[in-house]
Every structure is written in C-alpha cells, then in structure tokens.
C-alpha cells in the first residue's frame, strides 16, 4: 500500500479528481443555469437554442467531447488556456481543457435538473400568485423559484455525483487523476493492480457517499409537501 502512495502518488491523483470536480461543478452550474433560462423562456427561438444545446451535448459521449477539446480546441484552433511558457504548460492546459469538456457536457444535465424542479410546481401556484396581484418578478421571487429550487435539489445532487465519477474520463487527455493513476499502475506494476483498484474504488465511495446522503437528507427535509 505504501508504494501506492509514494511511487504512484495516490493522494495527488485524488486531489486532482477533487479539483476537477469542484471547477467543473461551478462552471456547469453557471452554464447550465443560462441554458435552463433559455430553455424555459417564453420566446420559441431561445427555447429552440436551449433545447438544441441539451440535445447535442447530452447525446454525445463525454469521451468524444473531452478528446475534441484537446484535439480541436487546442491542437487545431490553437486556443491556449494556460501560459505556454510556463514549465507545466501541458498539465495546466490539459486540466483546463478537461474542465471545459466536463462543463459543456454536464451543463445539459444541470439544465434538465433545474427544469425538472420547475416542472414539479403545480400550475395553481402561479395562478394563485397572479390572482393575489403579485407582479411577474414578485411571483417568481416569492412563489415559483423557492419551490423550483427545492424541487431540483435531488436531481442536482445526482448530477454532482455523476460529475464526480465522470472526472475519470479526463484520463483520455492525460490529466493525472485517479483513472490515470490506475492506468499507470497497470502498465508499470501489474502486481499492484488489485490494491490500486480497491484504493481508488474506496476513494470514490468516500467522495460520492457523503454527497448522496446529504442530498437524500436535504431532498427529504426540503421537499415541498403536496
């Protein structure tokens, strides 16, 4: 076990996974909210834009998206996301490209989670808000959005768990996270493979289990009783 920590740097691989998760979670929350606003707007054209985004990115494999980030965005279009003179240019650049890929992919899931939150609200809520004379802004702020937010906690939490696990796909462009560690062990030291797999599996259980429990708890506690 100790060689796993010293030679294959299990902890820094785990830290990389966590960094990918946090960066991509923030990014996809922002982009996903924007797409959700488009997809739920009253203007058909904007709705079409949002729907197209979701249909395109949700139906493309994440592997293809992350690979394209590297092979197209960087290699062909020359979009550098890091200082090309710095010594760890490739690591930083690939990390950021992987984050871009994860954000593009998971934004569509964030959008759908928010939308399913809105869809849990009965039409009567909005009608009641209007009939007591609330303006559009007031009814959104006081009646609709609080319920929509509470309704989307569980799907958003599930999206976060999926994102945590999907960070492993970043290995296709060589980001040194858990899957890369496992691939390296397979190549260099097959005898350690079982240990490495068990260790990385436990790490993921430890990462996703608390999120799952917290989401379940919050989901139950904050659910709108109807």
């Amino acid at each position: 076990m100790s060689t796993l920590f010293s030679d294959y740097d299990l902890l820094s691989a785990l830290w990389m996974t966590i960094k990918l998760t946090i960066a991509a979670a923030i990014g996809s929350l922002v982009v996903g909210t924007l797409v959700a606003v488009l997809r739920m707007s009253p203007v058909p054209m904007l709705r079409f834009l949002g729907t197209s985004y979701v249909n395109i990115f949700r139906n493309t494999p994440l592997t293809l998206i992350i690979l394209s980030c590297n092979l197209v965005l960087w290699a062909k279009l020359g979009i550098n996301l890091a200082d090309s003179k710095s010594p760890d240019f490739f690591d930083t650049n690939n990390f950021r490209l992987a984050v871009v890929g994860l954000v593009l992919y998971h934004a569509s899931y964030v959008c759908e989670s928010l939308r399913s939150g809105v869809n849990t609200i009965p039409l009567g809520q909005a009608e009641a808000a209007r009939s007591i004379g609330l303006t559009f802004g007031q009814s959104l702020r006081e009646v609709i959005l609080p319920q929509a937010f509470r309704g989307s906690i569980v799907p958003l939490g599930n999206a976060l768990i999926a994102l945590t696990k999907n960070t492993t796909v970043a290995v296709v462009i060589g980001v040194a996270e858990m899957a890369a560690m496992l691939a390296k062990v397979t190549e260099d030291d097959p005898g350690l493979l079982n240990q490495a797999f068990v260790a990385s599996a436990i790490a993921f259980v430890l990462l996703t289990l608390p999120t799952g429990l917290l989401v379940g708890h919050l989901g139950k506690k904050l659910a709108v009783k109807r």
């Binding site: 696990k165 496992l182 691939a183 397979t186 097959p190 797999f197 599996a201 259980v205 996703t208 289990l209």
Partner: peptide, 21 residues
C-alpha cells in the same frame, strides 16, 4: 451500491489490466 459508486472507467481499466496480465 458498489457498482453505482465506482466510475465505469475505473472498472474497465481494472478489468482490462487483470485480463491482460
């Protein structure tokens, strides 16, 4: 629960590594 918590890619890499020993 284990099958749902562990990323598919990790399982794939592990199985491939174990098979190709």
């Amino acid at each position: 629960e284990f099958g749902r918590a562990v990323p598919v890619l990790l399982m794939m890499l592990f199985l491939y590594g174990a098979l190709t020993r």
